[in-house]
Computed example of a mutant assay.
Amino acid sequence: MSMNLAHYDLGQIIRHRRYEYRGVIFGVDPCFSLDEQWYESMAVTRPPRDCPWYHVLVDGTDRTTYVAERNLAPCEDHQQIRHPKLGECFNRFDGDRYYIRATTQ
């Protein structure tokens, strides 16, 4: 039984284990939250749905991805991420991680 505790944090730079891209986490779901059709067509390795899933800005592209925790690893390369939506999500980079932009209501 999963406790759904995320191992990675908002603003953390990660690496995808299979596809080797770098990215930064901008959202975390305690378990899979998209629909069955998405899971069947996109989650080719069939990762568990009851573990954390992450929303990731992919470095050097304008893409975002939704990735199961088991497919991520910490990234040794802490160079800044290049993504057009970076400033919408984060307001600061300290050389190690990004800090999420506060939302106003």
Rank of each mutant, 00 (worst) to 15 (best):
R101M: 13
S33G: 12
I25T: 01
I13Y: 02
C31S: 12
I100K: 15
W53A: 14
F26A: 01
Y98N: 03
P48M: 08
C31F: 14
H78F: 01
V58G: 03
R70M: 12
R49Y: 01
T45K: 09
E20Q: 14
C51I: 15
V56Q: 09
L72K: 09
V24F: 11
L10T: 05
S33K: 15
I25F: 11
G60H: 05
N71K: 07
C75D: 06
N4Q: 14
Y21N: 02
H16F: 00
R46Q: 07
K85P: 00
P84I: 00
R97Q: 10
D9H: 15
V67A: 00
T103W: 08
D94R: 02
R92L: 10
R63Q: 05
T45C: 09
P47M: 02
V44T: 11
A73R: 10
E36C: 00
T104I: 02
T104M: 04
N91Y: 12
M42A: 15
L86A: 01
A102N: 09
D29R: 15
P74Y: 00
D9W: 01
M3Y: 04
S2F: 10
R92I: 07
T45H: 10
V67S: 05
C31T: 13
Y8H: 10
P52W: 08
C31H: 15
C89E: 10
R92F: 10
N4W: 06
R101K: 13
Q80E: 12
D77N: 14
N91S: 02
N91L: 11
T104C: 07
S2D: 08
H55I: 04
A73P: 03
Y66Q: 08
E40C: 05
R22H: 04
Y19E: 13
H55W: 12
N71Y: 03
R17T: 13
G23F: 13
I25L: 09
H83C: 06
H55T: 14
F32R: 06
P74G: 04
Q105A: 11
R46G: 01
D35K: 00
P74I: 01
G60Q: 04
P74F: 04
R101F: 02
R49C: 13
P52V: 11
T104P: 02
C75R: 03
I100P: 08
H83M: 02
Y98V: 03
G87S: 14
F26Y: 12
C89S: 11
Q105P: 03
Y66D: 07
Y54V: 11
D35W: 11
P48S: 11
G60E: 13
P47V: 01
P30W: 02
Y8N: 00
Q37A: 15
R70I: 12
D29G: 01
A68L: 03
P74M: 02
D96C: 04
R63C: 10
G23R: 07
R82M: 12
S41A: 13
D77H: 05
Y66W: 05
I13C: 07
H55A: 02
C51V: 15
R46T: 06
H83D: 00
Y39R: 08
P47F: 06
R46I: 05
G95H: 02
D9F: 00
W38M: 13
D9K: 13
M3H: 09
Q105K: 12
V44Q: 13
G23Y: 07
E40H: 11
R101G: 01
Q79K: 07
R17W: 08
V44P: 05
L72M: 07
R15L: 06
Y99H: 12
H83R: 02
E36R: 09
C89M: 09
T61W: 01
C89G: 00
H83V: 08
R92D: 15
V56M: 10
T103L: 13
H55N: 12
